[in-house]
Write a protein that binds this DNA or RNA. Structure first.
Lengths: 117, 117
DNA sequence: TTATCATTTCGACTATCGCCGAATCATGGA
DNA sequence: TCCATGATTCGGCGATAGTCGAAATGATAA
């Protein structure tokens, strides 16, 4: 069951235009961006982008909310996290040297709150 | 340039049969599994699986090496790591609460060498 | 070399995806 | 209400991906 949604999310991301849009939204953080602004920044026709945003949103990767005339899209970090979790599940098969680099990747995503003290 | 290969990897994984095969290889660890054994375990025709393994290998996610009559496939953990890194790049946009769950996912992939003391 | 087994490639069919122009829907302002 | 604007949906065409049976390739052992 989880399998189907993972495939859907991966299929949604397996497209240059959608991956660009998604990454832009990921970088935009919680506030997100209006659809038109996205189309302008990515330099794609609004209707094409709209279809791609629909696909991303069906896959649970983004969501849109209306604000006046605009629809503001933002990344759904929770589902993004679950997808990554699904991909790295049981990745290590007992060999810690496989798993270690993955940890480093996550720790490199260090934000500003890295210092524990 | 990195973009293209990320899309290729995601497209390769955006397929139930291939994702099953890949995950099975990921769990199999470095030793990997012969193609026929994979086909048997996944219950798919050998030629179909062969095509899918070719796609995965072109995407850099798996590799095959010959051992006698069999070709043994194994996951390429390095490229898998790079893909995850690409997906979570700049994920936090300054908000640490976005990034923290991702770190937890990576830390949950804890292997046996988790204990720091 | 010849037989045999594991795997891969070939060929053709079907289904689905992606893109674009045009029409439609939703909102805010005159 | 009527118009302007931002966004989405609809219709279609062309291109691509997926599957399977059948044939070919590669490797081994006698």
């Amino acid at each position: 069951m989880e399998m189907k949604s993972a495939v859907a999310a991966l299929a949604a991301l397996a497209h240059e235009g959608r991956l660009n849009a998604f990454r832009l939204l990921v970088r935009a953080g919680r506030p997100g961006l209006p659809a038109g602004e996205l189309a302008r920044r990515l330099n794609v026709p609004p209707n094409t982008l709209s279809g791609n945003l629909t696909i991303l949103s069906h896959a649970g990767l983004v969501e849109g909310r209306r604000a006046g005339k605009s629809v503001i899209y933002s990344a759904r970090y929770g589902d993004m996290t679950r997808l990554l979790q699904f991909l790295m599940e049981d990745c290590c098969a007992g060999s810690s040297d496989i798993c270690a680099p993955l940890r480093d990747v996550a720790l490199a995503c260090a934000c500003e709150e890295t210092e524990p003290s």
